[in-house]
Design a protein around this nucleic acid. Structure first.
Lengths: 105, 105
DNA sequence: TGGTAGGTACGATCGAACTCGTACCTGCTG
DNA sequence: CAGCAGGTACGAGTTCGATCGTACCTACCA
């Protein structure tokens, strides 16, 4: 069962939602940038500079969070997002590498 | 440029369309069954027994073909579908394994 | 105290995609 | 020849998702 903030546990991460989340180019871009950074790095939603409104950014980060790709933690008035690298690698080995290897668009 | 039947060449296979195609559970099921069979195996669309109408089956197979996941060849009044195993493996190593490992739904 | 910045929630819009029925074409087969 | 099975094309319905504006909350700062 997902926790209070909508994070699925490792066993709950399913391929369908993960692929649906990664089907969107903006969300792939977020995952790619997180994957390129150091492990455990946490960034704010706005630090990605997505070319959409704040409401839409929230929408995309929720999709990533509920699929189990990122973890979001409240920190003050911000919400830091980090990649669930080990969890994804455990469930779908190699998937992150494929996304990370995609050239920027 | 895709050929007359809509097959992209290996270099034209892109991650976005591939992930969009694989986001659908019925299409994942087709890929999974093809991946489980011998390399180069060709099956008719109807042999998968998808629980949807003929028109919808055609729709799904076009999505798979245009993404570059399968190759479809006319053979008499049938149209044989086979997995583009080597092509996908070359572009996105490990992806087929991830899809193939998903348990049936 | 007020303003600003980061985010969320809600409602609305718009287009894409999944679905289907129907009509049609092509081979095979009785 | 007639019928059937495998597929496609087209149009239509319906649902889903990406997007936005607005309103609102919380923390920080002048």
């Amino acid at each position: 069962m997902p926790d209070d903030e909508g994070h699925p546990s490792v066993e709950e991460i399913e391929l369908g939602p993960v692929l649906s989340a990664l089907a969107d180019p903006l969300r792939r871009r977020v995952v790619r940038e997180l994957a390129a950074g150091p492990d455990g790095a946490a960034r704010t939603c706005s630090s990605f500079g997505l070319p959409v409104s704040k409401a839409t950014v929230t929408h995309h980060f929720r999709a990533l969070r509920e699929a189990g790709l990122i973890r979001q933690v409240d920190r003050g008035n911000s919400r830091m997002a980090s990649l669930r690298r080990a969890d994804i690698e455990q469930r779908f080995p190699g998937l992150l590498g494929i996304v990370a290897a995609e050239p920027e668009e």
